[in-house]
Design a protein around this nucleic acid. Structure first.
Length: 814
RNA sequence: GCGGAUGUGGCGGAAUCGGCAGACGCAGCGGACUUAAAAUCCGCUGGCCCGCAAGGGCCGUAUGGGUUCAAGUCCCAUCAUCCGCACCA
C-alpha cells in the first residue's frame, strides 16, 4: 500500500465523527466479569481544560483502556465540581447568573474532553450544581443532623474579607486565605453549622492501615499530622479564691511537680472574670497582633493575671498568666507551664523570671540544676521531687498519675486531636442550601425529607457584601414552619463545596436515582474505587472529607466499605517553561491549543513521555515536536507496509524484530501492572520503531503483519486515534481498544547469547559472548583467556574471581 | 525549627534486586535528496588526553568520607532545591 502522510487533523476528525454515538465506554454491572473502577478527580468548570488536566486524564485513560483490553469490566466516569466561588465572582464582573456561566463552561470543557476522546461513560456524568445531585447533599445533612453529626454553634471562624465568607481551617494557609495569598484572615464570631468529623478522628487514623501500600506514604503522613492525635491527661487546677476550675491538657503529667505557672490563651473564657479592663485590653491586643502572622515570627509574650491556682497533686499555689503562644483552638486553651521540661515554657519563663524547677532526671545522669540550665530537658526520665511519685519512670508515672486524677475527680487520661469539626456554613449564593428552617416558636427545624430538594432560586442579585445573597429573596426566605405552621425563616447559608466532592464517586454508580443517593447493590458491585488519580494538593482536604463521608455512609447502612479508594495515585504538576502556570503570567497551556497544533494523540503522549507520572513535568513545545514526528514515523511505516506480500523469506532480521517486539510487550505490560513509568514505555516503542526502520526491507511478510498489528495495540492506551486509524488500515475490525492486549512469548523475548561484562579490579575491560547458562568455571576460563584481559592483567597475580552467571566476571589482581 | 522528597550531559530523563552510567527524546552538528528551503532518510553528539587513523587511556551521577571484588544505587556528614507541617502543650 502507498505510504500516507500523518494528517492528525483528518484522522482525529474522522474517528471523532464515527464514534459520535458509539457506546463502547458504557459501563454496566456484570457479576461474571472482574470489575475495575478507575477515577480521575472531577474538575472545577473554570471554562478551559489545560495541560495539567490533560495529564491527569491521560494517565487515567491509559489505565482504563489497558484494563479493558485485559478483559475487565471498567467504570470510568467524569463530572463537574460545579458549585463554588468563581461563578459568583464572574457574575459580579460580567452581570451573568452563576448558573448560566457554569453551564456554558461545562459545555465548552466537555467539548474539549470529547475532542481528546477520553474513554468516559458520559451517561453517568454528574454535575454537582443540579438539584438532582445536591438534594442528596441535603439528605446526607439531615441524616447527620439526626445522628448528632451535624450541629450548630456560635464560633470564632476564619473570615476572608476578599471572599467575604467563612473559610474552613483547611482553607487557611499561613494565616491567609488559600485563594488570596496576601489577604490575612480575620476571626469572627458567627452561628455556624459543623460536621462532627472529630467523632471519626480515631477511625480515620486507624483505617489508614488499609491504605498502606495503596496510597502514597506522603499523603498518609500528611493526613496523620493533620489529625494530630496526642495522648495525655486533662487536669483541673483550682482557682485559689473562687474554687473555679482551670482545665489544662498535657502529654507530660509526669512533670506536673515542675509546673511553676498556669498559662491561659488570650481568648480563654475565664479571662472575662479574671481580668480587669486593662488586662482584657491587653489580651485583645494579643489576639489582634497574632492574626495573619507567621507563628514562628511572633515572640512569646504574656502578663500576670493577678490570680493564683492550686496544683492538685502538690497543693502548690502557682501564678496564672496570660500567654500569646497558648492556642484557644487546641486542647483546653490552657496549659501548665513546666519550664524545666518544655522548650516553649522554658523560653517564656526565662523571659519573665518565673522559676524553673527540674523534676525529671535522665535515666543515666543526674537531675539538672537551676540556675544554670541552658535548655529544657524534654526527654523521658525518672521522676524526682515529685512527692509519692518520685523514682518512677515517666511512662509508668503518667499512667498512674492519670488514674489518680480520675479517682480523685480532678482529671483523667485524655486524647486530643488537632483536627477540628468541619465548619460548613458559607455566606454565599452558589452552593447547596442548608435544609433547615428557623422558627421563633420551635427553634431550628429540619426540612422534612419529602420536601427535598430545597431549590436554590435562580433570580438572585449577587452582591459580594458578606451576607448571603439569599437573604434578599423573600420567596426563598419566608416559609411556614414545618412543625407549628407559623411564620419562619429559611436558613440562608449554603454548604461548603467540599461536601459535593466528598461522595460524587458513589453517585456515578447510580447517577439518575431519584429515590436514594444511590442503590447500595450497585455500590457493592463497583466499590471500592480500584484506582483514584489526582493532584497531591488534595492530600488533606478532599481526601480526608471523602474518607469521613464514606464512614458516615457505612454507619447509616448505605455502603459496606470503610474506605472509598483502595489505591491513590498523585500525579506531579505541569509547569510551563520553568514557571508555574497561571492566568496572570499568561503561560497557561490550553488543551484546545494543543489539539490544534499537534493533535490530541501527541499532546497526551508528550505529557506521558516527558517524565514519570508522579514527577513534575516542564512543558516544552520543542519536546512535543518530537512526539509528533515519532507518530508520523509510525504512521508512514504502517501505511506503506500494511498488507505487503512482496517481503523476503524469513531470516535473521525477523528474529531480531520479533525479539524486540516481544521485549516491548513484556516491558509495557509489566509497567502497567506495577509502576506506570509510561515515559520508558513510550521510549521502548520508539526503540522498536527505530529497529523497524533499520530492518524494513529485510522482514518477512508474516513478521511484518504481526509487528504492525501489535504496534497498533501497544499504542492504543496512549494514542487512541492514530492506533485506531492504523488498525483500520491493517484491515482489522472494530475498536482497537476492545481487542485483547497482546501477549508476549518469554522465549522469543530472550537474547540468543549472553553478553558477559569482564572487569579487572571493578573496571570494564572487555565483553565476551556466551550461551545462557554457561557454568561459572567456563566463564572464568573464557574471561582469563580474553586478549584484552590478558593485556590488562599483565601477568599480575589473580587474587579473586567474582562471577555473576549470565552477567559479569570481575577479576581481582594485585 | 521539625518531617519528607529530590540532586545524573546544553535540556527532559533512563539505569526496576549493589554488577556495562547517560536508554529514549529535545536542542546542536554533519551527510543524502532538492535549483533552494521545508519535509523526509542516514550518521555524530558527557568532559579531558594520546593517535594521521583504526583504536586506546583517564575523569565523571551535588560535595566530603565510609562499606564492598564492585556504589548513581547502601551507610554517615555537609550543601542546594522543592514540598508539607510549623508555638499542637
Amino acid at each position: 500500500m502507498p505510504e500516507k502522510p500523518y494528517d492528525h487533523q483528518a484522522i482525529e476528525l474522522k474517528w471523532l465523527e464515527r464514534w459520535k454515538d458509539a457506546t463502547f465506554y458504557k459501563a454496566e454491572e456484570d457479576p461474571s466479569k472482574p470489575k475495575f473502577y478507575v477515577l480521575e478527580m472531577l474538575p472545577y468548570p473554570s471554562g478551559t481544560l489545560h495541560i495539567g488536566h490533560i495529564r491527569n486524564y491521560s494517565i487515567g485513560d491509559a489505565l482504563a483502556r489497558y484494563k479493558w483490553m485485559r478483559g475487565f469490566n471498567v467504570l470510568h466516569p467524569m463530572g463537574w465540581d460545579a458549585f463554588g466561588l468563581p461563578a459568583e465572582n464572574a457574575a459580579i464582573a460580567n452581570k451573568r447568573p452563576p448558573r448560566e456561566w457554569t453551564l456554558q463552561n461545562i459545555a465548552a470543557m466537555k467539548k474539549t474532553h470529547r475532542r481528546f476522546g477520553f474513554s468516559y461513560d458520559w451517561d453517568r456524568e454528574v454535575s454537582t450544581c443540579e438539584p438532582q445531585y445536591y438534594r442528596w447533599n441535603q439528605w446526607f445533612f439531615l441524616k447527620m443532623l439526626e445522628r448528632g453529626l451535624a450541629y450548630r454553634k456560635k464560633a470564632l471562624v476564619n473570615w476572608c474579607p476578599k471572599c467575604a465568607t467563612v473559610l474552613a481551617n483547611e482553607q487557611v494557609v499561613d494565616g491567609c486565605c488559600s485563594r488570596h495569598d496576601e489577604t490575612p484572615v480575620d476571626q469572627r464570631a458567627l452561628e455556624q453549622w459543623f460536621l462532627k468529623i472529630t467523632a471519626y478522628a480515631d477511625q480515620l487514623l486507624t483505617d489508614m492501615q488499609q491504605l498502606e501500600g495503596g496510597w502514597p506514604e506522603r499523603v498518609l503522613t500528611m493526613q496523620r499530622n493533620w489529625i494530630g492525635r496526642s495522648e495525655g491527661a486533662e487536669i483541673d487546677f483550682m482557682l485559689a479564691e473562687t474554687g473555679e476550675h482551670i482545665r489544662v491538657f498535657t502529654t507530660r503529667v509526669d512533670t506536673i511537680f515542675g509546673a511553676t505557672c498556669v498559662i491561659l490563651a488570650p481568648e480563654h473564657p475565664l479571662n472575662e472574670t479574671l481580668l480587669d479592663a486593662a488586662g482584657k485590653a491587653r489580651a485583645k491586643a494579643m489576639v489582634d497582633a497574632r492574626a495573619g502572622r507567621d507563628p514562628g515570627d511572633i515572640e512569646k509574650e504574656g502578663f500576670f493575671s493577678g490570680h493564683y491556682a492550686l496544683n492538685p497533686y502538690s497543693n502548690e499555689r502557682v501564678p496564672i498568666w496570660i500567654g500569646n503562644f497558648v492556642l484557644m483552638g487546641y486542647g483546653t486553651g490552657a496549659i501548665m507551664a513546666v519550664p524545666a521540661h518544655d522548650e516553649r515554657d522554658f523560653e517564656f519563663c526565662r523571659k519573665y523570671g518565673i522559676p524553673i524547677r527540674p523534676v525529671i532526671s535522665p535515666v543515666d545522669g543526674p537531675l539538672a540544676v537551676e540556675p544554670g540550665m541552658k535548655e529544657a530537658f524534654t526527654e523521658d526520665g525518672i521522676l524526682e521531687n515529685s512527692g509519692p511519685w518520685s523514682g518512677l519512670p515517666g511512662d509508668e508515672a503518667r499512667r498512674r498519675m492519670s488514674a489518680y486524677a480520675r479517682e480523685h475527680g480532678f482529671g483523667d487520661a485524655a486524647i486530643t486531636y488537632r483536627i477540628k469539626d468541619w465548619g460548613i456554613s458559607r455566606q454565599r449564593y452558589w452552593g447547596t442550601p442548608i435544609p433547615v428552617i428557623h422558627c421563633a416558636q420551635c427553634g431550628v427545624v429540619p426540612v422534612p425529607e419529602n420536601q427535598l430538594p430545597v431549590i436554590l432560586p435562580d433570580q438572585v442579585e449577587i452582591t459580594g457584601t458578606g451576607r448571603s445573597p439569599l437573604e434578599n429573596v423573600p420567596e426563598f426566605v419566608n416559609v411556614a414552619c414545618p412543625r407549628c405552621g407559623g411564620t419562619a425563616r429559611r436558613e440562608t447559608d449554603t454548604m461548603d463545596t467540599f461536601i459535593d466532592s466528598s461522595w460524587y464517586f458513589y453517585r456515578y454508580c447510580d447517577p439518575r436515582n431519584d429515590r436514594m443517593p444511590f442503590d447500595p447493590a450497585k455500590i457493592a458491585y463497583w466499590f471500592e474505587i480500584d484506582q483514584y488519580i489526582g493532584g497531591v494538593e488534595h492530600a488533606i482536604l478532599h481526601l480526608i472529607y471523602s474518607r469521613f463521608f464514606t464512614k458516615m455512609m457505612r454507619d447509616i447502612g448505605l455502603v459496606k466499605n470503610s474506605e472509598p479508594a483502595r489505591r491513590l495515585f498523585t500525579q506531579g504538576m505541569v509547569i510551563a517553561e520553568g514557571a508555574k502556570m497561571s492566568k496572570s503570567k499568561g503561560n497557561v497551556v490550553g488543551a484546545d491549543m494543543l489539539a490544534e497544533k499537534y493533535g490530541t494523540d501527541t499532546a497526551r503522549m508528550f505529557v506521558l513521555f516527558a517524565a514519570p507520572p508522579e514527577k513534575e513535568v516542564d512543558w516544552r513545545w520543542e519536546g512535543a515536536n518530537g512526539i509528533h514526528y515519532f507518530l508520523g514515523r509510525v504512521y508512514r511505516f504502517a501505511t506503506r507496509n500494511a498488507g505487503r506480500t512482496d517481503m523476503p523469506a524469513e531470516g535473521a532480521s525477523d528474529r531480531k524484530v520479533l525479539r524486540k517486539l516481544h521485549q516491548t510487550v513484556r516491558k509495557i505490560t509489566e509497567d502497567f501492572e506495577t509502576r506506570w513509568h509510561f515515559n520508558t514505555c513510550i521510549a521502548s516503542i520508539m526503540e522498536l520503531v527505530n529497529i523497524l526502520y533499520a530492518e524494513e526491507e529485510n522482514i518477512g511478510s508474516a513478521t511484518m503483519a504481526e509487528v504492525l498489528e501489535k504496534l497498533a495495540l501497544l499504542l492504543a492506551p496512549f494514542a487512541p486515534y492514530i492506533s485506531q486509524d492504523i488498525w483500520d488500515e491493517l484491515g482489522d475490525e472494530g475498536p482497537v481498544f476492545r481487542h485483547c492486549w497482546p501477549s508476549f512469548d518469554p522465549e522469543l523475548a530472550k537474547e540468543d547469547l549472553a553478553e558477559i561484562v569482564v572487569q579487572v579490579n571493578g573496571k570494564l575491560r572487555s565483553r565476551i559472548q556466551v550461551p545462557f547458562g554457561t557454568p561459572e568455571e567456563e566463564l572464568k576460563a573464557g574471561a582469563l583467556a580474553d586478549e584484552k584481559i590478558q593485556a590488562a592483567t599483565g601477568g599480575k597475580k589473580v587474587v579473586k574471581l567474582i562471577v555473576v552467571p549470565d552477567k559479569l566476571v570481575n577479576i581481582v589482581v594485585k
